[in-house]
């Protein structure tokens, strides 16, 4: 068994514990969707499309705000092992709900009563930190769609190994034992809109992990913000 942090303090892929992977992203990849994005965080690759706001189904309609409808789906060939189904398993449903809750707190939902916004995430290649990457992809797609949000949401995953915080975990670091936390914050602030913990973490370590997560979210925010700013001149403003 290879150790997750080497004796010299480097990780398997040569990163330092607090270092995130390269983020490559593009906005407006699909012409048919209102907004779309493609994000690469290292070898994790995600496509996201946003449809709406459009009229919601009668049974789903809410009179004071809009409904956020997400679908998280993983291509069967995306991981090292082949998956049998792209969606519908426990994990996918959990992620779907988490994404919905996250964006319910980030989008100005009261601006669109009775309507619905669809956010669809498709994982094309899986190399860890999927939930965080999905949140980042969805933020960019929502931006591209021009849906008003309180701020850009940025997310990061943070693991805790040998009393050190590891950020932006890759697939090989996501073992069954490492406690890992996904945190999403609003804008460049420490307002948390999503928090999820997998495996067990001692409560004494929680402040440390949380602090590192928020800091990483700020780093990711800078990347997303730069991408949005770069995309802006090429897009058309609608008044």
């Amino acid at each position: 068994m290879m150790s997750i942090i080497s004796e010299h303090g480097y990780r398997i892929d040569g990163r330092l514990p607090h270092q995130i992977r390269n983020i490559n992203c593009r906005l407006g990849v699909y012409p048919q969707a209102e907004g779309s994005s493609y994000i690469e965080q290292g070898n994790t690759k995600i496509l996201c499309a946003v449809y709406g706001p459009h009229e919601a189904k009668r049974s789903k309609q809410l009179q004071d705000r809009c409904v956020i409808n997400c679908q998280y789906s993983v291509a069967t060939f995306s991981g090292l092992e082949r998956k049998n189904r792209p969606r519908g398993d426990r994990k996918a449903n959990e992620f779907t709900r988490l994404l919905e809750k996250t964006f319910e707190s980030a989008i100005m939902i009261n601006a669109f009563p009775g309507s619905q916004i669809d956010i669809f995430c498709e994982v094309v290649q899986n190399d860890g930190s999927l939930l965080a990457a999905c949140v980042n992809a969805a933020t960019l797609a929502l931006c591209d769609a021009g849906i008003p949000m309180k701020a850009l949401v940025s997310a990061s995953a943070c693991g805790f190994v040998d009393s050190k915080c590891l950020v932006d975990l890759s697939n090989r670091e996501e073992t069954d034992l490492t406690p890992r936390m996904t945190v999403a914050t609003l804008g460049n602030t420490s307002q948390i809109v999503l928090i999820e913990l997998e495996n067990r973490l001692h409560s004494n370590h929680l402040p440390q992990v949380l602090a590192q997560s928020t800091k990483t979210c700020a780093d990711v925010f800078e990347c997303l913000h730069a991408a949005v700013r770069a995309h802006l001149p090429g897009s058309v403003a609608i008044f």
Binding site: Y30, Q32, S36, L47, Y51, Q71, S73, T76, F120, E122
Partner: peptide
């Protein structure tokens, strides 16, 4: 196996 991603159309 074929999967229709919701990204294509809602």
């Amino acid at each position: 196996s074929v999967d229709c991603s919701a990204n294509a159309t809602p």
